[in-house]
């Protein structure tokens, strides 16, 4: 395999929090285009930390993070990463801060330099794909938690990322919202890392399931690539 094909390549990564808690000691991990990876593991194993390291929100103590073929070290190296990889936070209230859904979804595209007209078109298209048509003018903090999660996903995918990092997206979702979430992933997204403790959910969305434990990532199970797509 040509190494250039990796979207994300992590070598010998060590990371401890400022309070001294050691999370990773020489972690290796890689992701290619087209990988649908489920990530599970005990609480505090560092699943969220790993996603935040990839986005440059946390900086490693040592080791190498290579994304899109380039080593990323400084804050400015991650500007491009944040434009091309989308992270969905565990708590949607952290992600949604604009008054209306239209503005929240448009926030990313506008930061990418899109015009107001282009941003509006993106909002319309994204809301439609996620079954949120007609939500544009609604007030973000008055949504139900399921709706909030879908809108949070909309704000991330509106930036048209090449890869999604999803932090426990299925927690607290009812059946209908889960279904819409799954439908979107299956139809529109082909590369992602998805953290979840729900193995049933992971089996539905991931081709491979990894387990993060004691600073190691191990294969938990490989699922058949020809799995039936149920929508």
């Amino acid at each position: 395999m040509n190494r250039e094909e990796y979207l994300i390549e992590i070598r010998d990564l060590c990371f401890s929090y400022a309070n001294g808690r050691k999370v990773f000691n020489s972690l290796n991990f890689s992701l290619k285009s087209g990988d649908r990876i489920g990530l599970t593991g005990p609480n505090g194993a560092g699943k969220t930390t790993l996603l935040h390291l990839i986005m440059g929100l946390l900086k490693p103590n040592s080791g190498e993070i290579k994304i899109f073929g380039k080593v990323r070290k400084e804050e400015k190296d991650f500007t491009e990463v944040r434009q091309r990889i989308g992270l969905l936070f565990q708590d949607s209230d952290d992600q949604l801060f604009c008054p209306t859904i239209e503005e929240d979804v448009a926030f990313g595209p506008l930061n990418l330099g899109k015009s107001l007209e282009e941003a509006r078109a993106i909002v319309r298209e994204t809301c439609e794909k996620l079954g949120l048509k007609g939500f544009e003018k609604r007030i973000t903090h008055r949504l139900s938690s399921g709706e909030k999660r879908l809108v949070a996903l909309a704000t991330v995918v509106a930036m048209n990322p090449e890869c999604l990092l999803l932090d426990e997206p299925s927690t607290g979702l009812d059946e209908m919202s889960t279904e819409r979430f799954l439908k979107y992933l299956k139809e529109y997204s082909d590369t992602y890392i998805i953290i979840s403790q729900d193995h049933g959910f992971l089996k539905d969305v991931a081709d491979k399931i990894y387990r993060l434990k004691d600073s190691k990532i191990e294969m938990w199970g490989e699922l058949k690539k020809t799995k039936k797509i149920v929508i």
Partner: peptide
């Protein structure tokens, strides 16, 4: 966390 989420969206 909010600030980080905002950074992620540029």
């Amino acid at each position: 966390r909010i600030y980080k989420a905002m950074l992620c969206r540029g």
